[in-house]
């Protein structure tokens, strides 16, 4: 149907890049901690959806809890609570964990 050839460029997964230590993926952020988003990688149609929902570099994000059966995470971006699966959370790169939210 639609061609997304030129768009779906798999960006390098910065979280494993040794040059940028201190960075981790949102999926690795411990529950209750917050951090700032550094980059949103991954396939463009997913990254675009994530960014439209508020996951943009610079925005503060925190992991509130995980779902009872372990998978979707409840995260908070700005004042908004969202459910994202770990698979998507892994494409979001965040900085150092900063504070503990109550």
């Amino acid at each position: 149907m639609e061609s997304r050839s030129a768009l779906t460029v798999e960006a390098a997964t910065d979280s494993t890049d040794p040059m940028r230590r201190g960075l981790r993926s949102l999926a690795e952020l411990p529950i209750g901690f917050s951090a700032r988003i550094v980059a949103v990688n991954g396939a463009s149609h997913i990254a675009r959806r994530l960014m439209e929902m508020g996951f943009v570099p610079g925005a503060p994000v925190s992991v509130v809890r995980q779902a009872p059966f372990g998978d979707p995470l409840e995260v908070r971006v700005r004042s908004c609570h969202l459910a994202v699966r770990r698979a998507e959370a892994r494409t979001i790169v965040v900085g150092d964990p900063q504070s503990f939210i109550g």
Binding site: I46, P72, E74, C80, H81, L82, A83, V84, R85
Partner: peptide
């Protein structure tokens, strides 16, 4: 089709 991502709002 590609597994659609789950990015779902949990409204107040």
């Amino acid at each position: 089709g590609p597994t659609p991502p789950l990015v779902m709002e949990l409204p107040p």
